[in-house]
Write a protein that binds this DNA or RNA. Structure first.
Lengths: 147, 147
DNA sequence: ATGGCTGCAAAAGTTTTGCACTTCT
DNA sequence: AGAAGTGCAAAACTTTTGCAGCCAT
């Protein structure tokens, strides 16, 4: 994992450079935070984490950087059951979510199962599909007990 | 369709009454707007439409009503590629979205194809799955041309 | 009649922007 | 050196809330 994220960082640097974007400590710090966290973070949480090592890093920079990363396809803006925007890295392959409406727990899963569907729909509507998201909502075992 | 939405309205009235909620012209107007629009509306668009017939209907009421409807399971808050919250009625069966990242166009589609997946995951994670959402993102034919 | 609902205005919260200063390249 | 990026503060937006009056029940 250490090796891998190092590699990811390197390729992001290449990507930034190739787009005429600069490599700044702020961007690298934010990238690392997003990559490290497996889960989903909102802008404020990312800001809080970033400040632990660089207290002057501003929330504006977090937003600007997230928008940049979004444009570059490095993060995906998620909107789950909760309120704010959430971001997660897209480096580690597509994965989907199982969301408990009771306690808010989010379980991630992968499935190649959607490939067939993608092809079908791409053909049917003349779409080039670049990303997919599958969210399943319901109640986990624990929350079902408490009812 | 006319008949059907009339029936829907009636059953919503029952639901409201059974929850000790009042049936007000504002609520009925908002319900109708949401049911009529096939697509997805954000609070502001709903407000604009509502004002066409009742100019005094306030945005607060729109929000309060949407939250009420959400609690009652009458609408679902969606979060697509765009910015704000979007709401759509849940009366007309589950359907999913094909979203163009270029122009924002949203095509809805239905598929029973997810059933298998639902069962698989329900078993695997001991979840009771009540709702699912599948969003596929990409570029439509037109937007692909312009690049 | 009376408690819930609404409209209005103000507050709270989130995201964006203008500008002077700093820092990558 | 020069342009892009940053921090700070203010603005723009979206959503929620307090309160006085109104209206379904």
């Amino acid at each position: 994992m250490g090796k891998q994220s190092e590699k990811a960082t390197t390729s992001v640097k290449r990507l930034l450079r190739s787009m005429g974007k600069r490599i700044t400590p702020q961007r690298m710090a934010l990238l690392r935070i997003i990559e490290e966290q497996e889960g989903h973070l909102d802008a404020d949480e990312i800001h809080r984490l970033a400040r632990e090592e660089n207290p002057r890093l501003s929330l504006s920079t977090v937003y600007r950087t997230l928008n940049l990363f979004k444009e570059l396809g490095l993060v995906e803006e998620l909107h789950l059951a909760e309120e704010h925007h959430h971001y997660e890295g897209v480096g580690s392959g597509e994965h989907h979510h199982l969301i408990c409406l009771g306690c808010g727990k989010v379980i991630e899963f992968e499935c190649s199962f959607t490939d067939e569907l993608r092809q079908e729909l791409a053909k049917q509507h003349d779409f080039e599909i670049t990303r997919s998201r599958v969210d399943l909502m319901g109640y986990c075992a624990e929350c079902r007990k408490g009812r």
